[in-house]
Nucleic acid binder design. Structure first.
Lengths: 198, 198
DNA sequence: AACTAACTGAAATAAGCGTTCCACTTGAAG
DNA sequence: CTTCAAGTGGAACGCTTATTTCAGTTAGTT
């Protein structure tokens, strides 16, 4: 599949070269943060990240300027494969199947990366915000496609439908009692509710 | 309407009497906290509560033992009238109307008291937890009633439906772009999705 | 009015956190 | 091998907040 957009942020393009250990530690800090973000119960402090990475706290922060930028980069990194999968659903044959698949993935991703929502609250996170826009656009496209094929009702604004899906996935993932059964029920109710009346 | 449960926590029953100013300040601290909790953008610090109440920080905390208990009491207080309204819907004639009304109220309440969700994260809040159980039971009863009358499908577990409603209301209320239009669309989709197939 | 236990609140304390400092270490160029 | 700018991390700093202290104030009793 053709790569439609540039998501990599592994290294800054036009900067002066940095020492090998600095590059390695930047990677270690990023990986440590991603590891912590993927745990359901974790405190994302600089101290904790540094411990996970086997580095000093100062080194961890310096690699990205500050903690906010580090978390932003880590979240964006975690988001990338998910976004890729979301875009892939657009080439599936059946829009209903595509929508179901995306919803399931959305819920599972948010369940597995529960802490991300917490961490991003009230932060200015350029990388993550850009990813979110791409994701939103993908969801919009998917809803538009589903509408054209009579899978989704058109008496409700498409943007509102997309927003509904996003928010509601978050809610299910957030639930203390999240389970495959709850997820399945949720998707059934939403898909039925979104179907046009015959 | 008969009062079915005891929700008041205005004063501790069997304790030794306390001085008049202490009682008054306890009330002031509680009211100040409730006021702050009802604002969408507010920092609920002891300092802020004390300022709002016109008291010293120490006095505010001491009245309830610690900040956690104070917030717990304030949230429980805010929840009480809402719970009463929820229970009232059970005596409406039409279960579908009752369900719609409760959903709308649920979303509006959570929108207006947005900060509550933030504040309760990771706290042990006995009073609030008890209220939540009552609310959950009410929602369960309402769903059971709606099922008996063919308003809600019975191929999905009633508890799951109730949980769905609660979580999803939270999600809509939480949304940055919450609006009457979004709320209306959401309720339409959910109600349609919950209806049995004819 | 006098007395005292309860109560108050400004200030001190404690604890958590991100960031910065700086004496020391190390990669890599010559 | 030398050299030194780049890089490191333990410690110090600054900031925010909940909690405790304690000298002074006040409600309520006699």
């Amino acid at each position: 599949m053709e790569r439609l957009f540039q998501l990599s942020n592994s290294s800054v393009a036009g900067d002066q070269p940095r020492r090998a250990d600095a590059v390695r530690n930047r990677r270690l800090a990023l990986d440590a943060t991603k590891t912590l973000l993927a745990q359901r119960e974790a405190t994302i402090t600089v101290e904790a990240i540094a411990r996970q990475a086997g580095l000093g706290a100062a080194t961890v922060v310096r690699a990205f300027g500050n903690k906010e930028a580090l978390v932003d980069a880590a979240v964006a990194d975690l988001l990338d494969p998910f976004i890729q999968r979301a875009r892939d659903t657009l080439s599936e044959p059946d829009p209903e199947q595509a929508l179901r698949a995306l919803l399931l993935d959305l819920i599972e991703f948010q369940s597995a990366h529960w802490i991300i929502g917490e961490q991003l609250r009230g932060l200015t996170v350029p990388l993550t915000t850009a990813r979110r826009a791409v994701l939103r656009q993908t969801l919009d496209d998917l809803v538009a496609w589903a509408r054209e094929n009579g899978v989704v009702r058109d008496d409700i604004d498409a943007t509102v439908v997309a927003m509904l899906l996003g928010e509601v996935s978050y809610a299910i993932a957030r639930s203390d009692e999240a389970s495959p059964r709850l997820t399945e029920s949720f998707i059934t109710v939403i898909m039925d509710g979104l179907r046009p009346h015959q």
